[in-house]
């Protein structure tokens, strides 16, 4: 087993030891979304119109919730030094950490969102389309969030700083993710939006691991 898979499996195993951490993220996602109908009122056509935007924003916040521990835990117990000293590229380690984060947050959020979409009054192919856009868009959130987590490593109040760094960078993904459902409602397909989301994910994939590795090396000095 190579370093990448070892690290990915280790992080997943650590999550399994504390399933509550993922539970909190998913519960936050559900509670945050349910607040909107309570605040706005139960008008179905209003709710159906805002559903995609609300669910996308809530997914973004939920993904950020667990990010501040992504590298901080390794930094505090000294395992980050072992990754810095591993005889394979740190960029791969960064990618493995982000992949593990996506598997335990982005993936379950994408599966949960269509159900909440139906509760919001989305009908026809819209709930499924929402799930698809989240599935393609959330990897970008994990990668950008990973970069913010690496940059704020060791800083005080790193959670708030992390959100300030990551949220603006996630705006394009948010626009095209929520926009896809509106396009679907307007009778257009979602293919263009999904393609742009995939392109954003690929750009993040091709750039963030190097930036994360550089930030981690800086933190390790």
């Amino acid at each position: 087993m190579n370093g990448f898979t070892t690290l990915l499996m280790r992080d997943l195993r650590l999550v399994l030891r504390r399933p509550g951490d993922v539970g909190v993220v998913l519960a936050f996602f559900v509670v945050a979304t349910v607040l909107f109908p309570l605040g706005i009122g139960p008008e179905t056509n209003v709710l159906a119109r805002i559903a995609a935007g609300v669910l996308w924003c809530a997914a973004l916040f939920a993904a950020l919730l667990s990010l501040d521990r992504l590298f901080a835990a390794d930094y505090e117990d000294g395992t980050l030094d072992l990754l810095l000293l591993a005889p394979w590229p740190l960029e791969l380690a960064a990618l493995a950490k982000c992949a593990a984060h996506w598997i335990v947050t982005g993936l379950p959020l994408s599966l949960l969102a269509p159900v909440l979409g139906i509760a919001f009054g989305l009908d026809g192919p819209s709930p499924l389309a929402l799930g698809v856009t989240l599935l393609v868009g959330t990897p970008t959130l994990s990668l950008i969030g990973g970069l913010a987590a690496a940059l704020t490593l060791g800083a005080r109040k790193s959670g708030a700083l992390l959100a300030l760094l990551a949220l603006p960078l996630c705006v394009p993904t948010l626009i095209f993710g929520a926009g896809a459902i509106e396009a679907l409602a307007a009778g257009e397909g979602i293919v263009t939006h999904v393609a742009i989301l995939a392109a954003l994910a690929l750009v993040a994939l091709a750039t963030t691991p190097w930036a994360i590795a550089a930030a981690l090396r800086q933190a390790g000095e």
Binding site: R10, E76, G78, T79
Partner: peptide, 10 residues
């Protein structure tokens, strides 16, 4: 290092 580099949950 002065930190052990061990995961507490493992």
């Amino acid at each position: 290092g002065h930190l052990e580099g061990l995961k507490g949950d493992l």
